[in-house]
């Protein structure tokens, strides 16, 4: 299993991002974790660095329920950007919702690799990274 260079965590819940970043760091499998508070922030980041492949992540963990731009709205706009991105980015929806409609809806979106119900445990993280290598 090779280490992941960059992983972006998109969530407005500060307690959650703090704890999750801690779990990821403990596993020593990801070189860098970057946190974004809402969909718009990460969207702007990707748009700005679209040609700088090194600065783009291999994995995005995306919350759905966020202010300003939520996860769904981000995905809509991200798909528009996709043709211009010269890097394979895996997006995992990471949500507290166990609502089946949310899970089904996420799985219909091509850009979404999987739907993970919070919390993100060490086992779940290893699973993601295994698939990714």
């Amino acid at each position: 299993m090779t280490a992941i260079k960059k992983l972006f965590l998109v969530d407005d819940d500060k307690v959650f991002t703090f704890l999750t970043t801690r779990i990821i760091a403990k596993n020593n499998l990801v070189e860098q974790v970057k946190v974004f508070g809402n969909g718009l922030d990460i969207l702007n980041f990707i748009a700005e660095n679209i040609h700088d492949v090194a600065s783009l992540p291999e994995i995005i963990l995306l919350d759905l329920n966020m202010p300003i731009m939520d996860g769904w709205q981000f995905l809509e706009r991200y798909i528009d950007l996709l043709p211009k991105i010269d890097k394979e980015i895996k997006i995992y929806v990471l949500s507290s919702s166990i609502f089946p409609e949310d899970i089904d809806k996420a799985k219909t979106i091509q850009a979404v690799s999987d739907y993970i119900i919070k919390p993100l445990t060490g086992d779940k993280l290893i699973n993601i990274l295994r698939k990714n290598s």
């Binding site: 307690v15 959650f16 704890l19 801690r22 329920n65 507290s96 919702s97 166990i98 949310d102 919070k118």
Partner: peptide
């Protein structure tokens, strides 16, 4: 209501779960 339960109530519960764990 379901949405509220799924997102707004479950989110803090997840946090609690994680905090208790750590």
């Amino acid at each position: 209501f379901s949405n509220i339960v799924a997102h707004n109530l479950r989110a803090p519960l997840v946090n609690i779960e994680m905090l208790v764990d750590v």
